[in-house]
Design a protein around this nucleic acid. Structure first.
Lengths: 205, 205
DNA sequence: ACCTGAACACCGTTCAAGT
DNA sequence: ACCTGAACACCGTTCAAGT
């Protein structure tokens, strides 16, 4: 009981991580609306003023959380694409994973894409966000390399693919579309439907 | 000065509308995060308890506002489609208007699609929302009627079209995409790009 | 019938003070 | 160096009381 002074005083920055971890859980449970810094402090067992030693304000903590979210999305997309054969399968897989990741944790998703956080110059966030974009651009470039896609700017094609999967995700996430977040089969079907139209369009011929 | 007791006491429900109007302005100015019921009351010159005579709580007032937003979107879409010739032009026009309407007022858009409002049974909102969907389904049905589109469920095709325009709008609205909301030319170019891919796909041939 | 003022339980943030 | 407790200016919501 004597040698370890670790668990109850959070020296050297343990508190920072403990706060982030608790914050992430609270965000999942209560959503961004019901999220308070004081709750986070309480959850960690520290005074409500303590977080200010590690984060300038609530927004700064939320930004740190958002960074994690984008990194997770990037990794999930990269993984999904890695195991695929052709450009068609890559796009379908990416759409499916984008949907899953984004629907699984609505609180985080709203933090990432809800405009909750005051956009602030060249953060860590802008970097991680552009990493997400680059995965999508990468899919398109691979397809272009084998002559699968129309000869246009990769970024333009990627933007359209991104918009489509993102829009579907947001419509589900905002409960605009009546889809059960846990119904993986339905999610996959929707993903495939969207990806295939992005590939071949809705027009006959 | 005697006959008219109108302006300073808000009898018979004037206050309700005055509150909604002020709320809409404050939402535009300060965004959904900086929006408070007390501010609304202040703006109208009434005590902070007065709104409770007309709305059960903050959420109820916001829901009423959201209803207006969906109705405006529906009307804008219907107008845009009305003046168009073929199915292609209709879809492009709809995408353009969806983008404009939604980017013009980010506060309202986040209220409508940000999951801010606790979804609540069969509202007025669900009705107005499905009216928006029906305009989009209408475009698709018209295209199907002249044999322009693939033979699939109209609602499935409409969902993809909706996802695409919605996703583009959300990416812009959340500042994920670096687009000036006032740059109408760029917005229109993006809308056309997305609509055309939805029509013909990104695949060569 | 409609509005007010005080009150309650919450926030985010700051700052002197403690170890 | 790191955390606490009191304090301040805000919320949303309720409720007795006023007209």
């Amino acid at each position: 009981m004597a040698g370890l002074k670790t668990t109850d005083h959070y020296h050297h920055g343990d508190l920072r991580n403990a706060l982030l971890q608790a914050a992430e859980r609270l965000l999942q449970e209560r959503g961004v609306g019901g999220f308070s810094l004081r709750d986070v402090a309480r959850a960690v067992g520290v005074s409500h003023a303590a977080p200010y030693r590690h984060f300038r304000d609530k927004g700064t903590l939320l930004r740190a959380l958002t960074g994690r979210g984008f990194e997770r999305l990037r990794a999930a997309l990269a993984d999904a694409v890695a195991g695929q054969r052709g450009p068609e399968q890559s796009l379908i897989a990416a759409t499916r994973v984008y949907l899953q990741t984004t629907v699984q944790d609505p609180g985080m998703t709203r933090l990432m894409f809800g405009g909750v956080i005051p956009a602030q110059g060249d953060d860590d966030i802008t970097l991680r966000l552009s990493s997400v974009r680059e995965v999508l651009v990468g899919i398109i470039k691979a397809g272009l390399a084998v002559g699968a896609y129309r000869d246009r700017e990769p970024r333009e094609l990627a933007l359209v693919a991104w918009s489509s999967m993102h829009g579907l995700a947001m419509l589900i996430d905002s409960a605009t579309l009546d889809v059960e977040p846990d119904d993986t089969e339905q999610l996959d079907a929707l993903a495939r439907s969207v990806a295939q139209i992005v590939l071949y369009g809705i027009s006959r011929s």
